[in-house]
Amino acid sequence: MNVIEVKNLIKKYKNFTAVDHISLEVEEGCIFGMLGPNGAGKTTTIECIIGLKNRDGGEVNVLGIDPNVDYKKLYNLIGVQLQETSYQDKIKVYEICELFTSMYENPVDYHILLDRFGLHDKAKSYLSQLSGGQRQKIAIILALISNPKLVFLDELTTGLDPKSRREMWDYIKELKNEGRTVFMTTHYMEEAAYLCDKICIINDGKIIALDTVDGVIDLADIDQVISFETEEDIVQLIEKEIKGINKIEKENKKLKIYSKREDLLTDLVIFLKEKSIKYRKIDINRPGLEDAFIKLTEKTRKVE
């Protein structure tokens, strides 16, 4: 079942098209990640999906609701963490929790959430005195008070130190394990690769990839790189003996072999053994999401 269905979503600011015919579906219970360079239209897309902005075209359906029509019903069913939101000066943790509790029809007990996120002893603290990581935890807690089926996280981990970020990952996985659907944006590729069941890369308001992490990497069609060091000059020999090599780079003693063949390593090692060539520091570098992201977003830039 799809919890989000977007068809040909368009959002324009004067002459600038921020979101250009975006269509996507998010299946219940998955973590959906939206990636894209700054200004690609991620936040605008989220804001159109949850009805914070009125769209200029297309259809949006979230949990069976059109957000521009019945936002009040929708906001009782979803939880939201918005980018760069801060809260009132001098508000205490329990006060903001009580305030959000009062807003929803079926709130969960925020004390339980504070416990779960390890903030129970901070209830009486001012929000402004918390660390960045703790404030982002509060942002998730506030998003969870409505006990939502669907949670939107817009750059939740931006600006956090690596340890806090990993901690957030565990919490996001937990949300999924509880049966909630997560729609998130991030700039961290390892985060998207670790968390997301499905990824959507957008650039200049258009979708350029929409698939699983592996699917997106395949789509980018990037060579894997095998590198090793050797004293001997064997570039031409390798090119002649081994099939399916796209490129060999030589830098001092270091050789880099570019290829799409998964079994190239086997052939290479056999070849090196047969010819009794000494080698060391052999390394295989499979393309990751970050390589795919950079290639895909660059490609669309060049087309312009």
Partner: peptide
């Protein structure tokens, strides 16, 4: 003005309030 600048108004807009 502060509530708007810090996106507090916007955050409230994403609730049933």
């Amino acid at each position: 003005a502060q509530y708007r600048e810090r996106k507090i108004l916007k955050r409230f807009m994403a609730t049933p309030t």
